[in-house]
């Protein structure tokens, strides 16, 4: 009897908590389809008229460039970060998991140390380096490090290494008997068995580079090259006299890709989050 009551209370509490937690997002969404004077009026939760045209107004709200440009830019940027991260970290993960080489332990310790290193220490000198290389105001500063395993590389390579260690060695040995060398083992044995971890590295890289703000802020100056984060901030700073509804509409749109990717890849991500504790 008390157990039953306990369960009901718990259920009610959880529903209330979920409502409170999600209310800001619901408010944001409903605000995106409300008229300007209704958003902050209080009292009414649902809009009296669903103003879907806020989405169109927001899309074209900034002069010279639409949000279409910002979305294309971001997809381009994210594509290269994902590709670079997958290529460089599978290679390194394979080396750490399966191959023998001098200073292996030392290098693995360095890898783990970079997991703990706060990026802010590198902020200024990296900026100096990239500006000397002429990479400022292009996507190079944001994408090229990924090809060298330096976009959350420590974490990704760690994930890869742990995963590859779990692939039965018999598979490698059988391939050796068949006359495969290191490269062919990597290509024909390891890679096909790595699909889940490759997938989760790709998803993490997608979500983190999509949401990254500080680096985009530093390295991209031309509005024509802006990402959605930068575009949204520009909109926010100039929104004083503009419609809040359309600002909210664009906010919702910028969230959708991350939400979509997360719920598509949920099962692959949860393990990664659980073993490393990093944000989704």
């Amino acid at each position: 009897m008390t157990n039953q009551r306990h369960r009901i209370l718990k259920f009610i509490f959880l529903i209330a908590l979920t409502l409170i937690m999600l209310y800001p997002v619901i408010w944001l969404f409903l605000g995106s389809v409300k008229a300007n004077n209704e958003i902050f009026a209080g009292g009414r939760i649902l809009p009296s008229v669903w103003k879907w045209e806020n989405y169109k107004a927001g899309w074209y709200a900034l002069p010279r460039f639409t949000f279409g440009t910002f979305f294309m830019n971001t997809f381009k940027l994210v594509f290269f970060v994902v590709l670079g991260s997958i290529v460089s970290t599978t290679l390194a993960g394979y080396a750490f998991a399966r191959l023998d080489f001098p200073f292996k332990n030392l290098l693995f310790t360095v890898l783990l140390a970079t997991l703990m290193l706060p990026e802010q220490v590198l902020l200024v000198p990296r900026y100096v380096l990239f500006s000397k290389l002429g990479w400022v105001n292009s996507y190079k500063a944001l994408t090229i490090p990924a090809f060298f395993g330096q976009f959350s590389g420590g974490f990704f390579i760690y994930l890869m290494t742990q995963f590859i260690r779990g692939i039965p060695r018999e598979l490698d040995e059988a391939a050796v008997v068949d006359g495969c060398g290191t490269f062919r083992i990597f290509w024909h044995v390891i890679l096909p068995n790595c699909k889940p971890v490759v997938f989760s590295v790709g998803l993490f890289a997608f979500m983190w580079s999509w949401n990254d703000f500080l680096n985009q802020l530093l390295y991209i100056n031309d509005v024509g090259r802006f990402t959605v984060s930068l575009g949204l901030r520009l909109f926010l700073d100039s929104a004083a006299a503009v419609s809040w509804g359309s600002l909210f509409a664009m906010s919702i749109l910028t969230l959708i890709p991350v939400i979509f990717v997360f719920y598509v890849g949920q099962e692959f991500l949860v393990d990664g989050i659980a073993t490393t504790g990093l944000k989704g």
């Binding site: 080396a95 970079t114 060298f148 330096q150 490269f183």
Partner: peptide, 23 residues
């Protein structure tokens, strides 16, 4: 084998020196 291992490791190794340790 060492050589091959370092080939696999090369991107990360270059990256860690150029983009992390040096900065």
């Amino acid at each position: 084998n060492n050589m091959t291992a370092f080939l696999f490791l090369a991107p990360w190794l270059i990256g860690i020196f150029v983009f992390t340790l040096w900065p």
